[in-house]
Amino acid sequence: MSFSYLVRRLLLSIPTILIVTVIVFVLVRLVPGDVVDLIIGTQKFLSEEQILKMYEDFGLDKPIFVQYFIWMKSMLSGNLGISLRTGEDVATMLLQRLPVTLELAFLSIFVSIIIGIPLGIISARKKNTFVDNLIKVVGLVGLSSPAFWIGTIFIVIFSFYFESFTIFGYVAFFENPMKNLQVFLLPSFTLGLMIAAQILRITRTSMIESLSMDYVKVAYSKGLGKNKVIYKHAFRNALSPIITVTGIQLGYLFGGSIVIENMFALPGLGRLLLQSVNQRDYPVIQAIILFIVIVIIILNLLIDFIYTIIDPRITLG
C-alpha cells in the first residue's frame, strides 16, 4: 500500500533527523576547549548580557543531554547563533547565500539531465556497439575525474581562448541576468558533467532492462513506431530509477558545490562553509552542515513520494 509506505517513510525520517542533530551537537562539543570561549573569540562583538545569555543558552553547567535539549530548543526557534567573525545572525547569512547555491544546483541538474539521459538512451539502444562502448567510457571518465580538474581545464581554456568571457565575478540574476548566466555557465557545466556521468549509467542500465520487458516487445509487435515505444513506454518505465539516482546525487551536488563555488568564487553556502572552516567559525559551520543534511533528507523524502506516484508498484519494502 503506497499510503502506509509514505507514512512509514515519513516516520522513519524523524529519528534520522534527530540523530543527525545529535551527531552535529556531539562532534562540535568534542572540540578541545570551552564552546563559549571559542564562540566569543578575541573580538568583542557581544555585550556582557549577550555573553551571559549565551552561557545560559548553552547551559554549560548542566549535564550534556540537558545541554542538547537547550540547544535544540534554540535551533527550533530559528536561533542559529551569531557568527564569531562578523557578529551577524547566522540564519540571515544562510538565507543570503542560499540563492547562489540553489541556482548552481538547478543549473547543474539541468545540464546533467540534458546530457545524461539522451546519452544513456542512445547507449541502451545501441547496446554493445562501438557507440555504446564509447559512451560507457565517457561515463566512466566523467565519474572518475575530480570536479576541480574539469573546472581547471575549463578555466584555462576560457581564459586563454575567450578573453572577453567573464569567468569570475558573481552578479545576482535580477541585477544582470545575462552576466549572471555567463558566470554560472562554467560552474554548472563542471558540476553537471559529474552528475551526468551517474545519470548516464543508470539511464542505460534501466533502459536496457525496460526495453527487454514483455510489454515493450508487445508494443513493438503492435506496430508502434520505434521511437514512440522508446520514449513513451520504455523511458517512462526507466524514469523511476533515474529519479532515485538523481536524488542520491543531491548529496554529491552539495559536496561538489563546495569545491565548485570556491573554485569559481560564487558566494554560496559552500564558499561560506569553507570560509567559516578556515576561520573556525563554529556556529556558522554547524548551521550550514545541519541545514544541508536536513535539506537532503527532506528532498529524498520528496523524491520517494514522487517515486511512488510514478511507479505504483512500490509496496512496503
Binding site: T166, I167, F168, G169, A265, Q275
Partner: peptide, 11 residues
Amino acid sequence: IIPEEISRSTA
C-alpha cells in the same frame, strides 16, 4: 569583498 586573487584580477 573578493577573497579570491584570481577573481580580483579578473574584475
